[in-house]
Amino acid sequence: MKRIIPVLILCGLIACKGDQSQETEKDKSVIDSLNSEELLPENLLKSEPVVLNLEEANKLVELPLGCIDTEYPNKLGQTLENEAAIGEPSELHPAFYGCFDWHSSVHAHWSLVKLLKNFPELEKKEAVKEALKNSLSAENIRGELDYFKREESDSYERTYGWAWLLKLAEELRTWKDPLGAELADNLSPLTDLVVQRYQEFLPKLNYPIRVGEHTNTAFGLTFAYDYAVATENTKFKDLIAKRAQDFYLKDDDCPLSWEPSGYDFLSPCLEEVDIMRRVLPKNAFSMWIDDFMPQLKKKDFVMEVGEVSDRTDGKLVHLDGLNFSRAWVFYGLAKQYPQQYGHLENLANAHVAYSFPNLAGDSYEGGHWLGTFAIYSLQRAGTKEKE
């Protein structure tokens, strides 16, 4: 990574914005030639995008609506201070007790908000609004706050659940509807606490966590960064950008052939790409990714989808989630840098196409969370990114 350092010095790390040098005509001609369809593998040319339309939204909304009030089965994941700390899930978490675990409940609420924002004519729009108002009342959020302030809960849901809480807060704050503002205000005490927890934790984390599940550091940074940008929290944004560069700037040759592990739902390599494309300026990111995952620029790059052998197994079905999370990274990269990475949209389409048909009628092991991953992936497919 030696050649990226001068660029970052000149740019002041994160202060450098935009394209600081023009592509040469020769470079442009090479890029144009690589964009020609005949260089794309045949299987990728046939990968049609899944479109999230009103019909599909009406189907998908059933998943979060069906689980946010489903208290059992439940995985609490708590550390008990004493016997008095034991309680029913709905007592411990009056807002986010359903959907098997806390973080799944949080992102189920995000799914409801996202679908209602994008499709205000949902057949069950009134049921969605009522469910959101009931869950995200000021009283219920005070109950959640009390739990987070327990003696043994400093690291509760760190950082996966934290990240989804901020994604929910971001969605509410950017919803141009009085209900969105009301619910965002209700949620704000917990949102502020999560931001504080991030700001306390990140400076102490000496080494990133590079796994394909909940504790993946890059994923936690990515959603937090989006929230910081959306709310114009410059202090928080700069902290995340600094820590991402501390963790990942010198990384080379990510071992993509090692992925996936048996029940990953995140790609350690691609999640790192997802945060670095956000925090690095264009030229610095280009040089970084050339060292980290140069194969992504190849028009014939192929990554096989994660195959699920048993969708009733709560761990093995994680691989459906992996397909969606890989897809949202590919979509984001292709949208932000279409000349260099536009071909990855086809690969993203293939990953979504494999797992999307399995959402309806899936067992509760997958149904309580996979809809959210599908919705977020398809949102990235339709998002225009800034370079």
Rank of each mutant, 00 (worst) to 15 (best):
M1I: 11
K2P: 06
R3L: 06
A15G: 00
K17E: 15
G18Q: 15
G18V: 07
S21F: 03
T24Y: 07
K26L: 15
D27Q: 15
V30N: 10
D32M: 03
S33A: 11
N35K: 14
E42C: 02
K46D: 03
P49H: 08
V50N: 04
N53L: 11
E55T: 05
L60P: 02
L63Q: 00
P64Q: 06
P64V: 00
G66N: 08
C67P: 05
C67N: 12
E71L: 07
N74S: 14
G77S: 06
Q78A: 07
E83S: 09
G87Y: 04
G87F: 00
E91L: 13
H93G: 08
P94S: 10
F100D: 11
D101G: 05
D101H: 04
S104F: 07
L112P: 02
K114L: 14
F119Y: 10
E123C: 00
L132A: 09
K133W: 00
S135R: 14
L136C: 06
A138W: 01
N140K: 04
D146W: 07
R150G: 12
Y160T: 02
A163N: 09
W164V: 01
W164R: 04
K167A: 12
W175L: 03
E182D: 10
L183F: 02
N186H: 09
L187Q: 04
S188M: 00
D192Y: 01
L193Q: 14
Q199Y: 06
Q199S: 13
N206R: 11
Y207E: 02
P208I: 00
V211Q: 01
V211T: 11
V211G: 07
E213F: 07
E213T: 15
H214E: 01
G220Q: 03
A224T: 10
A230D: 06
N233V: 02
T234W: 01
T234N: 11
L239G: 04
K242C: 08
D246K: 08
D251S: 13
D251K: 05
D253L: 08
C254G: 03
C254V: 07
P255S: 13
S257Y: 12
P260W: 05
E272V: 05
M276T: 13
R278I: 13
F285D: 01
W288Y: 09
I289R: 05
D290V: 01
M293E: 07
P294V: 02
K297H: 05
K297P: 09
D300T: 14
F301R: 13
V302K: 13
E307F: 15
L319A: 09
G321H: 01
R326L: 11
R326T: 00
A327W: 02
W328P: 01
W328Y: 06
Y331E: 01
K335Y: 03
Q340I: 03
Y341Q: 08
E345Y: 05
E345P: 02
E345K: 11
A348V: 05
G361D: 02
G361P: 09
H368I: 00
W369N: 04
W369A: 03
A374Q: 08
L378N: 00
R380L: 07
K386L: 14
